[in-house]
Amino acid sequence: MQNKIPTHPMEDYLRMDRMPHIWCPSCGLGSIVTAFMKGVKNAGIDLNKLALVSGIGCTGRVAGYVKLDSYHTTHGRAIPFATGMKMANQDLTVAVISGDGDLFAIGGNHLIHAARRNMDLNVICVNNFIYGMTGGQNAPTTPLGAYSSTAPYGNYEQPFNLVGLAAAAGSSYVARWTALHLQRIQDSIEEMAKKKGFCFLEIISPCATVFARKNKGGTGLDLLQDYKRRSSIDHNADPQKIPLDMDGEIVCGVFVNDEKPTFAENVEKGTSRKVKEHPLYVQDRKDQEV
C-alpha cells in the first residue's frame, strides 16, 4: 500500500516551487504569512483580486512566496507602487507587507502621505527593530541603547513609535500585535481586508540572527518569550503614548478604527459635481476604452 504523500497545509496559498524560503529559523515571518493568508481568506475577498506589494528586505521577500499577483519593488517604494495599482483598478484589494526600515526609514514619507490621503491600502509592517537582510544595521525602530552593527556603542537615536506615527498621519485603522498573537493578527488582517481606507498593522517580530545576537537576547524563542512577557492588550490606549523600548511594556491592540472617506471616494465626490457638467466629459467610459 502506498503511503499518502503529506501535503503542506498552506500549499494552496504559497508558491511551493519556491520553498524552502530564505528566512532564518525562528523568524516571525513564516507564521505572519500564514496569518495573513488566513486573514484575507476569512475576509471572503477573491484572492484573484488581491495584489501584494513588498519593498526590499527580509519582509520584502513575502511577495515572492505567496500565490497572489505579487510585486517585489524597490526599497521603500511599495506604497506608491501600490497606490498606482489601486488608483488604476479600484476592484483590486491592494496590500503592502514590508519591514520597519523599508516603510519608516527610506519609505517613511510615502507612508505618512498615503495615510494622510486615506488611500485604500492595507499596510503591514513587520518590525524586528533592525535591518536583517543587510546584516544588522540600525533601523528607525532600534530602541535607544540597543546594539546594531552600525551602533557598536549602543543606539543614540530615539526610535519611531510606528503606531503613533501612523495614527497621527491619519490612518483609518491602526493596530499592533506581536508575532505570537497569531489569531489576533489574523483577525486584524481580516478586518483590514474588509475595511476601506488606509489600514496599518505593526507586528513585533523576533530576529534571532541579528537583533538577538547583537543584544544578547538568546534564541528566537527567547525573544518571543520576552515579547510575550512584556506585552499587554489595551484597545483604548492612546497610540501616541505607547512607544517601544528595550525592556518596557509592549502595548498591543486595535487603537484606531475610524470611518472616513477614502481618497478615491473624495475624488468621486469632487468630480461628480463639477466634471460631469464639463463639455469635455466623456459620459460612457466604456465607449472610449483602449
Binding site: 519593488t73 521603500g76 517604494r77 497606490t83 498606482g84 495599482m85 488604476a88 514619507n109 510615502h110
Partner: peptide, 18 residues
Amino acid sequence: FEDEIASMASILGASWAG
C-alpha cells in the same frame, strides 16, 4: 505625490494594474 520617487513608482503600479 509627495515626490518624484513616488510618482515614478506609482506609474509602474498603475501599468501592472492594466
